[in-house]
Design a protein around this nucleic acid. Structure first.
Length: 764
DNA sequence: CCTCCATCGATTTTT
DNA sequence: TCGATGGAGG
């Protein structure tokens, strides 16, 4: 018990020792949040709380696994239920499936499956979509589900064409899911939340069972999750939520920032603990993060601090273009590794959009820098894998029409979309599944004798496979591989691609075997096909991201949440990319973009480099890139602003070029100057003057700008292109200070001084 | 029914 | 730029 509290700071200890009643842990980045939660669980156990009364919920499998492991270390052998929200929902739904009109062996559709289903529904309803893609409609339905709005309750808003379409499609979509005994990801939460909401008895029962509930990343909860947690915390309001409003980056997925902002109103008598000491980053990095996020309005102000020793200043670098950026980053890493200062795995490269990884990837490959890219989903998303799994799904749940459609003609066996369409008609009219319709193929209108025979063979195949449905996963997958004809189909082919596919399927076989073996070791784990399928649905490959191998990590900012690296490079901090153009117009979304930058910055332990380029090739177009407005919000005191020697336009002497153009030296940037003393972070300062804005002109030049305050009405000023002019008026303050200037040849022009290359005439 | 090419469109994506 | 998607032809 005392060891549990050892090494904790007072705030952490306070949280750990809290037992009954609601608890809100506002945990800044790197403040030891997971430590607190796991220690608190161990503490509860040490007080004699039975493990089965404790439930800990996370968003990712990775987080759940880590938490489980750490609890195990603190309290060996105690079986605390640590799970993702979705897995928890899935488990509950298995138990109460009939209550919502599902079979217990229901299928979980991933985003792709859900989209496919939606497409079918839209087609069959024949309603005009007015140019809305299935994705848009799916997103709208998802949003409704996240907000706990069921198909019956959804009301279109007049004047909103998308909502009219959704109102028509949503009920049919939901009906089709039910008919297939399937759910989408959102349903896993929706069904359970509604069940708890509607059934008082059940709610009471589960509230009592789960006396102590813990939630991680509470800032990312949506309405459904909120209701679920609320329902489990009425009679026993021992809900402990951890989170950080500043790290909420899933608003677009339905996360409701109000959940955390209003926690104190929702749970009267709540104890609030703030974890503000950061154990991860240098003062400079923390200062940059803190100053940036202070520009957000919707937040709970907090003062982050660290006792970590000073490190290098945060670097802000301007590159000529994306290639230059990637190459320079690569060279910096090479240099650090070669000198023995760093390992490859010390580095991470973050970017706002996946498309930006391409350049980096290419450069890294060429220079043979070992790296791993974290892309969401991968393995289970591959066509051949999905196909094989679809057979398993159909074995497990014969009503699964989507699995039927996927499998019926794969590998090709002469049953085309026409035939499936006829079967679907028949199925619809008789209210049966596609598989049952297939059983009646000879009676189905428009299906020829020959086709009926082919369909019959498929049905026979499914029946053969049925024998494996209850057995171990490996046998099921193996049976599919043999009987479906995939092995022959891919094995006989001499195309490289097909052989690769076969290899992937073999890999799936291995995966299934490993699952079986792992399950055999667990005490009460169910080692069957259904359990395996559930894992393939709810576990993605990102969870298998490897932090042991010595490789550079490349990922999006979203993927970076929850991780930390000694050295972080954040690329393309440019207008339209970060903040993303689609978010720029809406202040709420803009704040989320700022939080995204905050998350990225706070991943860095020792070194951080933010960069932007003057030109960016993006979507096949070359565009002039403007530095992100976020850069103007950063403190200069702890930063070092640099610029590479952009190959041509800055007039670099040819003899300074090493090899081809592709290898322009950039030591200018990476000459690690002795760490200049770094100022202590200024927690809630709202910087206006003296920010990086002063150092970054609109042209992205590193030359120091003139302070906006240096200008006076009537003053003669000089502009590099417009020549000399006279200041007519001045308005605003700080970085928002504007001037109107009249030029003899160009007339009157307006400038935002912090962003303009304007300077008093006669100065260099 | 399958395969090949034009056309379009394009954040982020814990589950 | 690249990929997914759909229409035409074999």
């Amino acid at each position: 018990m005392t060891q549990l509290l050892e090494g904790l700071n007072p705030a952490q200890r306070e949280a750990v020792e809290h037992v009954d009643g609601p608890l809100l842990i506002l945990a800044g980045p790197g403040s030891g949040k997971t430590r607190v939660v796991t220690h608190r669980i161990a503490h509860l156990l040490s007080l004699g709380v039975p493990a089965w009364q404790i439930l800990a919920l996370t968003f990712t499998n990775k987080a759940a696994a880590e938490m489980r492991q750490r609890v195990e270390r603190l309290a060996p052998g105690q079986r605390v239920w640590v799970s993702t929200f979705h897995r928890f929902g899935a488990k509950m739904l298995r138990q109460y499936a009939d209550r919502v009109g599902l079979d217990p062996n229901y299928t979980i559709y991933d985003a792709g499956d859900a989209r496919q289903t939606l497409k079918r529904v839209v087609e069959s309803l024949k309603i005009p979509v007015m140019g809305y893609t299935p994705d848009r409609i799916a997103a709208a339905i998802s949003k409704a589900k996240n907000r706990l709005i069921g198909p019956e309750e959804y009301k279109p808003r007049s004047g909103n064409p998308l909502s009219e379409i959704v109102a028509a499609v949503y009920p049919a979509y939901q009906q089709r899911l039910l008919a297939s005994s399937a759910v989408d990801f959102d349903d896993l939460l929706l069904h359970i939340a509604r069940l708890l909401h509607d059934d008082t008895e059940l709610r009471k029962q589960l509230d009592e069972r789960f006396r102590y509930v813990m939630v991680d990343e509470y800032q990312d909860t949506n309405r459904a999750q909120y209701v679920l947690l609320r329902a489990l915390s009425v009679d026993y309001p021992n809900l402990a939520a951890t989170g950080d409003p500043d790290q909420s980056i899933y608003g677009w997925r339905g996360a409701d920032l109000n959940n955390i902002l209003e926690f104190e109103q929702d749970y009267p008598g709540v104890k609030v603990v703030r974890l503000e000491q950061n154990y991860r980053s240098t003062p400079a990095i923390l200062s940059v993060a803190d100053t940036l996020i202070a520009h957000n309005k919707r937040r709970k102000p907090k003062s982050l601090f660290t006792e970590n020793p000073d490190g290098l200043p945060v670097r802000l670098v301007t590159y000529a273009d994306g290639d230059d950026e990637a190459r320079s980053v690569a060279m910096a890493m090479e240099e650090a590794v070669k000198s023995g200062r760093r390992r490859w795995s010390d580095f991470a490269v973050f970017y706002r959009v996946n498309a930006l990884s391409r350049t980096v990837e290419r450069v890294f490959r060429k220079r043979q820098i070992p790296f791993q890219m974290v892309r969401g989903q991968e393995f289970y998303q591959r066509r051949e894998i999905k196909d094989v799994l679809a057979y398993c799904q159909l074995m497990n749940n014969p009503k699964d029409d989507l699995a039927f459609e996927r499998t019926v003609n794969s590998p090709p066996r002469g049953i085309g979309s026409k035939t499936v369409g006829r079967l679907a008609d028949y199925a619809y009219r008789h209210g049966v599944s596609l598989l049952d319709a297939a059983r009646d193929a000879p009676q189905v209108e428009g299906v020829t004798k020959r086709t009926a025979m082919l369909v019959g063979k498929f049905v026979a195949l499914v029946d053969t496979l049925d024998a494996y449905a209850a057995g171990p996963a490996e046998e099921a997958v193996g049976a599919v591989l043999e009987h479906s004809g995939y092995r022959k189909h891919y094995g006989d082919s001499d195309s490289e691609e097909d052989l690769n596919r076969l290899a992937n399927i073999e890999e799936l076989l291995t995966d299934a075997r490993q699952f079986d073996e792992a399950m055999a070791e667990e005490e009460d784990a169910e080692a069957n096909l259904e359990a395996y399928l559930e894992r393939t649905w709810l576990v993605n490959e990102t969870d298998g991201w490897d932090d042991d191998t010595d490789k550079v990590t490349l990922m999006t900012l979203h993927a970076a949440k929850g991780l930390e690296f000694p050295v972080v490079f954040l690329l393309a901090v440019e207008d339209g990319i970060l903040p993303h153009e689609r978010s720029a117009a809406d202040p709420t979304q803009l704040e989320e973009e700022r939080r995204l930058a905050f998350v990225g910055i706070t991943r860095a332990e020792q070194e951080l480099q933010l960069s932007h380029a003057l030109r960016r090739d993006y979507r096949g177009q070359r565009r002039i890139a403007i530095p992100s407005s976020f850069l103007m919000e950063l403190p200069t005191g702890v930063m070092e602003v640099a610029q590479t020697a952009p190959t041509d336009e800055l007039g670099l002497a040819p003899d300074e070029l090493i090899g081809d153009w592709g290898d322009a030296p950039s030591e200018e940037v990476y000459r690690h100057e002795p760490a200049e003393p770094v100022a202590a972070p200024t927690p809630t300062a709202t910087p206006t003057v003296g920010t990086a804005a002063a150092l970054l002109g609109s042209g992205g030049l590193a030359a120091p700008r003139v302070s906006p305050d240096a200008f006076k009405v009537g003053m003669a000023v000089e502009h590099p292109e417009l020549g000399v002019g006279k200041v007519l008026t001045l308005s605003g303050n700080g970085k928002g200070r504007r001037a109107a200037v009249v030029f003899p040849e160009h007339g009157e022009k307006r400038f935002v001084l912090a962003f303009s290359p304007l300077r008093p005439a006669g100065r260099p």
